[in-house]
Design a binder for these strands. Structure first.
Lengths: 186, 186
DNA sequence: TTACTTTTTTACCATAGGTTAAATTTTTCC
DNA sequence: GGAAAAATTTAACCTATGGTAAAAAAGTAA
């Protein structure tokens, strides 16, 4: 769905971590683990070395609504909490065994002081992220659920091996029954 | 809808423009003017000194779909074009006489070299923008059109004096007839 | 005021997607 | 393998929103 590779090379990050004594921490999570929950402040950006993560939140009835999926080389955070210090409402769930590198805001700032051009990269990365979300709003406003489903199938076929259809349905903004009906009608 | 004030103080920007000889340009546009069109590369970020701007795009049938509204102290750009160099699909329309300050990517980079802490601010600004878009996707997935309309009324009452209902309807993701029906049922 | 244009509302029918509930298939685990 | 649990599909019915077209209202200009 999103890769940070054009903006932050993980090999360089590991090198910088030693060179500038950033103190980055690694974290391994098992399939099924929810490593960030609603109400827990999100103090880090999580670089996914390897694995697959689903970000979701709960609606008023308590249903899980998938907000996005993230694979290798993506960076995820809960912007509400990480950037603005607001109460975190997102859950981060490992859909398979996942290796993470945690980067705190102070660590990122330190790194950018040493490597100023990375600041530009991270700025662009955030801008690209906004762009992806813009596209998604546009697709909601101009495409039917069936079209969005077919696009997703085409662009992220692996997703359908890793995520439940109910999780994909809520990502598409429909119920699992509707998704099932769409699939039936090919 | 969005203010850049917490991240970029316009008075400081004007001062820096002189101090570092950035060569920022101003632009005045009249009510009704479309100052960026589909296909025109977006080379700048536009700081809205004063005014009101609607950003829209065309769907396959040629209908205008409002993507967002921007008022004083917002910064807008077409990220597809500005960040990634892709073909621009957005139209920027002044809904009233509007004063803009144009900032190119090279100018912004120069400025950040002189004022490194601004880089962090711009990064946060882009992150907040992504956050706002996230919230909008969430509202589409968890609220009815009526709820989204009432929220908009409550949070941006002035919008209803400046924009046509048809423009607000497409922003909400519904037809103007649906919006009219929602208003009728209070 | 009148004429003209644009915007908004209304009405009618069509349809995508939601709701509920049950049946079926797949997965998990003993 | 077989029982239990979880995931998915199916079905019948319902509702919000879309599409079309026309009427009404509001805005604009002579």
């Amino acid at each position: 769905m999103f890769s940070s590779k054009p903006y932050l090379d993980i090999n360089k990050l590991v090198k910088w971590n030693l060179e500038f004594d950033l103190g980055l921490t690694n974290k391994s999570v098992k399939k099924g683990d929810v490593f960030l929950k609603e109400g827990q402040p999100c103090k880090h950006q999580y670089y996914i070395l390897k694995g697959f993560v689903r970000v979701y939140y709960l609606d008023l009835e308590g249903n899980q609504i998938t907000h996005w999926f993230c694979a290798d080389d993506a960076i995820i955070t809960s912007p509400f909490s990480y950037v603005k210090g607001e109460r975190n409402i997102l859950y981060f769930e490992a859909m398979e065994d996942t290796e993470l590198v945690l980067i705190s805001a102070p660590q990122l700032n330190t790194l950018i002081q040493h490597v100023p051009e990375l600041g530009e990269g991270m700025r662009q990365m955030n801008a690209e992220f906004a762009m992806i979300l813009s596209r998604r709003i546009m697709s909601i406003h101009t495409q039917t659920a069936e079209e969005r489903y077919l696009n997703l199938m085409e662009q992220h076929p692996l997703l359908f091996q890793k995520a439940k259809l109910s999780q994909i349905a809520s990502f598409l903004g429909i119920t699992q029954q509707s998704l099932s009906r769409i699939r039936k009608n090919l």
